[in-house]
């Protein structure tokens, strides 16, 4: 029944919503490019100094970089890196944030006070600055790696999920179905996992979608500052950084990764906005 309902919502609401459709289309396009990168693009690491700093052409649709590498290959392989890292961060953050937020909202009292203050502390520090500091610490301690970047961003990113989940759970725990479940003696963990979190999932999905755009921007920013994923692994922010010294002579090195960053953020934001419209309407109806 639930599956049938979900598929009906997908058919009747999501694809009728223009924002959703455009956003989903953009993301699908970038994701397909990333998935098909080994088929449609060359080796992103292959250097050819004879082809150094060539402008876009049929042979190199996005031109070449300072080592003669095909930028199209680097950008589409960069899509794999950026989307993989962004999805990993979002999923881990969502899992941690939702759990902490649900526990905080459901149990209340001193647990809620402690978690609430921790969330306040995290919210008081600008997220990007915090990320830079954390990546810097991890860099010095363990060297730069993709997992260090993921860890640094997750440490700040779970907070928004926790805050939203806590707010929703606070209102849900007073609803009749939760009170009924308590009355028949259901355990707290059962109520949380079976009744509370599933009913909070709509706004969380919206948040996760919108958050993907932010995470992509954060990864690109760290890459641009030289703190993110390191060369030679292709990553949009890092390609943008490598092209900044050639902005007057080879602007395509910065243009194409910049375009893909903008497109992916736009895609996730449009999809998130669209999902919000659809899911909020659903919440109102029920």
């Amino acid at each position: 029944m639930e599956f049938a309902f979900a598929s009906e919502v997908f058919r009747s609401r999501i694809f009728k919503n223009n924002l959703c459709t455009i956003g989903f289309g953009i993301i699908l396009f970038i994701a397909m490019l990333g998935l098909l990168a080994p088929v449609i693009a060359d080796d992103p690491y292959k250097t050819n100094l004879a082809e150094r700093l060539k402008p876009p052409s049929l042979e190199h649709p996005f031109g070449t970089d300072q080592l003669g590498r095909d930028l199209f290959s680097r950008v589409v392989h960069g899509a794999r890196t950026s989307l993989f890292v962004a999805m990993t961060i979002s999923l881990i953050s969502m899992a941690i944030g939702c759990l902490i937020g649900a526990v905080s909202g459901y149990f209340g009292g001193i647990i809620d006070d402690i978690i609430g203050r921790i969330i306040d502390v995290f919210l008081a520090i600008p997220e990007l600055v915090f990320n830079i500091a954390l990546v810097g610490i991890f860099c010095v301690a363990y060297g730069v790696s993709t997992w260090n970047v993921i860890l640094a961003v997750v440490i700040t990113n779970w907070v928004s999920y926790a805050r939203i989940t806590r707010g929703i759970v606070l209102s849900l725990k007073e609803k009749e179905f939760v009170l009924c479940a308590k009355a028949i003696g259901a355990r707290d963990s059962y109520i949380l996992l079976r009744h509370v979190i599933p009913n909070a999932i709509g706004p969380i999905i919206v948040l996760a979608t919108l958050n993907m755009g932010n995470v992509i921007m954060t990864i690109a920013s760290l890459g641009f500052l030289g703190l993110g994923i390191q060369p030679p692994t292709p990553e949009w922010g890092q390609i943008l950084n490598s092209g900044k010294n050639y902005i007057t002579t080879a602007p395509w090195i910065t243009f194409f990764p910049g375009l893909f960053i903008a497109l992916s953020v736009l895609g996730f934001n449009l999809l998130g906005e669209g999902l919000r419209d659809v899911l909020e309407k659903r919440t109102l109806e029920y």
């Binding site: 860099c139 010095v140 363990y142 060297g143 730069v144 390191q230 060369p231 030679p232």
Partner: peptide
């Protein structure tokens, strides 16, 4: 395997 490392590391 190329490892691009922070100076201290």
């Amino acid at each position: 395997k190329l490892e691009t490392l922070e100076r201290g590391v």
